[in-house]
Design a protein around this nucleic acid. Structure first.
Lengths: 184, 184
DNA sequence: TCTAATTTTCAACAATTCTTGAAATTACTG
DNA sequence: CAGTAATTTCAAGAATTGTTGAAAATTAGA
């Protein structure tokens, strides 16, 4: 690894644990992301100075994360690997997977718990807190589902708009109030 | 803890590690969130069956996360604790803190690395990947900064709009193209 | 079908992270 | 300004998580 690449790979390694992966997974991802050519398991092990079996396990996990994909190199029997190279795609995959692991289970738990009838006043208070949390998560989840499928160009427009979104929403509300021809 | 509360607290404990906290921190947060009254350290230790010193360490970390705040109970010398009870506020704090821990360091590293002149073709390719990643993160960061300060009601409107945001953006672009009176 | 290259599995070991009780510190109260 | 209540610190041990080499399984080609 060149020093240039190494700086980056070591950093994503350090961050890996904060992103729900771990150090090795982060390093592997980072390395594959900045490598022009797909790499095979031995090359990864070599570049990161980790064991071949660690790479095998790491690839297995990264497959589950949909962060790596196989690539074939002509005339070579070994499997080669790479990540999506489009940051938007990478970001989308990461967001979806994190949502699946970090949010979905909680949503399920909240739905189930909210079915139970609270008895004591304390439980009724707790239920109210759960209800509000459920509402927020459901709102965000639905929004993400809808947003994910928009073309990146639309998302960039939204991002660049920033807080000016408020003007747009205000304007929309005004026109919907004064006029029946809505786009809803 | 009542079984009702316990279900919830144990769940957020399990999820804690996926949210950048850990099991105990998650449990403490969950417990305080659904408790009508603030709790003191002994009550927390008791409810979660963990040691008093563990609670002390946990509170220290949760303070750093801005997820707990002190509350005074009249006629009691001990410190009492609670979380913000508004899910929107809770969500905002969690998002800000996670951003600070999970994204800011990477942004700094990318900025620094992008200052270095790549020599080899491989390094130039790597730099291009870093540049794209930097652009995306910066865009998202700026957006979040702007969005965070909007009133929750505006955010709810945006969330409920979902993918229909595209219509709105299209309409805006059209009017800006055909007409100089923009709100930009 | 057999062989050799490659990948995966797994149980033992290593490293990291979490938890604890005891001691130290701080903050009240008489 | 003691004396006690409450909190924090810290080093040792417990639990969890990550890493490895050896062996098993798989695969491709002869």
């Amino acid at each position: 690894m060149s020093p240039y690449v190494e700086t980056f790979v070591m950093h994503v390694g350090e961050m890996g644990s904060r992103w729900g992966l771990n150090r090795t997974l982060g390093q592997m991802c980072g390395l594959l992301y900045v490598s022009q050519q797909p790499l095979n398991a031995d090359e990864i092990a070599d570049a990161l100075s980790i064991s071949r079996s660690n790479v095998s396990m790491g690839l297995k996990e990264l497959k589950a994360w949909r962060l790596v994909r196989p690539a074939t190199v002509a005339g070579d029997r070994r499997e080669y690997w790479t990540t999506p190279k489009d940051v938007w795609e990478l970001f989308q995959v990461l967001t979806e997977e994190r949502h699946r692991r970090e949010v979905q289970p909680t949503l399920t738990m909240l739905r189930e718990t909210l079915m139970i009838e609270p008895i004591t006043p304390d439980d009724r208070y707790a239920q109210e807190r759960l209800r509000e949390m459920h509402e927020l998560i459901e709102l965000m989840t639905n929004w993400m589902d809808e947003i994910q499928n928009l073309p990146p160009r639309t998302l960039v427009r939204l991002l660049k708009l920033g807080r000016r979104i408020q003007n747009l929403l205000d304007k929309r509300r005004k026109s919907r109030n004064s006029n029946q021809s809505t786009d809803l």
